[in-house]
Amino acid sequence: MSHRDATSNVGFGQGKSVSIVTISGLVFLYLPIFILIVYSFNDSRFSASWNGFSFKWYKIMWHDGPLWTAIKNTLIIATANTLVSTFLGTLAALALSRHRYRFMGVYHKILHMPIVIPDVVQAVSLLMLFAFFHFTLGLVSVILAHASFSISFVALVVMAKLSNLDRRLEEAAMDLGANRFQVLTQVILPNIWPGILAGGLLAFTLSIDDFVITFFTSGVGSTTLPLKIYSMIKFGITPEINAISTVLVLFSTLAVSSIHLFDREKK
């Protein structure tokens, strides 16, 4: 925004007290993560003593079979969830922003509900659903559970993109004789694909990150990475958790920075 260019000269929000809180806030955000990373290189099993630099816990992590199974499960679930929820979420977004229905308000409310309702409530209600229909808990139940909340996130992201799309483009295409399917595939989709991509990415991340809903809807053989980390925290803390965490922090930093770079290149 152009009116922001003059900011640095005036210095709103750059006063001493505001700066101090900001720096403290960043320290607050990063200090625990920083120490977590440092101790992933500690040779000792106990964080109290620094026994020297070592890649020991990374080696242990590398040879941790159940950990790799958990990673594999996490990726299978996240990929399946992304496909299902991106497809269904995009349909919902197109329906609600380009069509007229009776009970439009109800449809919008239903879409927002999974986002606002606490995940523990959603988790136990899905558990009851699967118990009620004697559905065996496993990879499939987790994928269905993840999709039940991811659809809403995808739909909202795509709807935000659709609302920025100039409607006259679609009207012009219609006037020129395009049918609705052609308008969809040749006008709407090419224009909103970054939104769909962003929605899919969000669904993938939510899936990888989810603990609560997975905890209640997974069964034997569908342990995911967050479940594995949880049981390590609960039943035996070793610096292997620090090593796993460090890798995850590295991944999320790379992901956020590359999305940002990709975003800037578009502009």
Binding site: L29, I33, I35, L36, P226, I229, I233, V249, S252
Partner: peptide, 19 residues
């Protein structure tokens, strides 16, 4: 810098306080 923790695994961030 605000977004990176947002995209980092929640359990990991909470566990970080053990340190």
């Amino acid at each position: 810098l605000v977004l990176v923790p947002f995209w980092t695994n929640f359990l990991v961030r909470i566990f970080a306080w053990f340190t």
